[in-house]
Design a protein around this nucleic acid. Sequence first.
DNA 1: TAGGTTCCTATCCTTTCGGATAGTTATATG
DNA 2: CATATAACTATCCGAAAGGATAGGAACCTA
Lengths: 204, 204
Amino acid sequence: MRVLIADDHDLLRDTLVLFLEAQGDIETCTAGDLFGAHKLIDSEARFDLILLDLNMPGMNGLDGLKQTIAMKDGQRVALLSGEATKEIAEQALEAGAAGFVPKTLPAKSMINAVKFMAMGEQYAPIDFMTAVEESPEHPLAQKLTQRELQVLKGLTEGKSNKEIARDLELTEPTVKLHMKTLYRKLDAANRTQAALIAREAGLF
Amino acid sequence: MRVLIADDHDLLRDTLVLFLEAQGDIETCTAGDLFGAHKLIDSEARFDLILLDLNMPGMNGLDGLKQTIAMKDGQRVALLSGEATKEIAEQALEAGAAGFVPKTLPAKSMINAVKFMAMGEQYAPIDFMTAVEESPEHPLAQKLTQRELQVLKGLTEGKSNKEIARDLELTEPTVKLHMKTLYRKLDAANRTQAALIAREAGLF
DNA sequence: TAGGTTCCTATCCTTTCGGATAGTTATATG
DNA sequence: CATATAACTATCCGAAAGGATAGGAACCTA
């Protein structure tokens, strides 16, 4: 089984090579950037799997991945990254990548994943892919006072100012004032926009 | 490698056994229901992987899976199903399953998946797991006319009636009428509720 | 051709919204 | 103590929204 590893970090590249070669039945080639990888793909025999680091020179986001997938023989190309988000991983798989391998993967799992992908399957860490992309404690919520949040909650339930006032035991003018402040803080032009923005942000 | 296959469909069970045994290095046992599977787990040597059909007798949803995972030696248990939804698959993996295998998987992929899971990795088909659970052509959208949908789209963008009228080259009173109809059809009390309901339904 | 449905336009009127402005109370914070 | 901020109340006014009602045009169908 022949694997090409392209990553600009010597340490990671060498470690990966050591692990894979230790398996006995895996032969490795390496490159330090996308250009080097493409040269090897052109000149060498077919690889069973090509691993590309997302952040190495020449990659330019997922462009380098797509270019490599489009190269001769339709070889299998997987994305390797340390920090990539779930969105990047999904886009890579969507673009036809053989898989997505986080650098945080245990060595044993990484070898299994490489073998799995070389066999023609698509790999991605389940827990990584199913993780809910939790919005990092929306900055919006922090800008709002308790009262404003209460009013906003009422708004996202489609209530009128009068209803919100009754529920919170306030007068209607007060609710209106909070509304005005909310529009300013949420950068909304009217209550509908404010409600949509609040929902979009995942509040309530 | 020893694999236990539990499924109440004789045909599928036998087919799967044939495929796996043909690999040479895989030894299989079978059971027709959960009870039979548990008996084999108790009496036989340790299995490298246990495949449980979701719909066979005794399973009772994911309960049977959880029971089996909790049995001796912490053996690796995967869920096998033909119709399961993405939600079921996620719950199974959450509960500690070794993987989720749709019965629609090509034989070659199924074998690869079995081997992969037996090696200690977690498997699920990427495309299946990342598929967006698309609401089945929202019944709402069908009740609305073209115009109403256009107006609703404007509403979900937080526009005023006047703006919507200008964009669609209608008069404001007409937009208002469509709004009224929308409220009735969407069961909304006001524009904010209508906008939220439309967003909730995944329209636009 | 008559009857029905859908879509559009329009007017009248009331309620609600939203902005501007002004002021009170309580609680931090320097 | 002075100041700032948050929370609340209040009034005025124009703009927007929403309900009721009426009618016209296009299209399908009996």
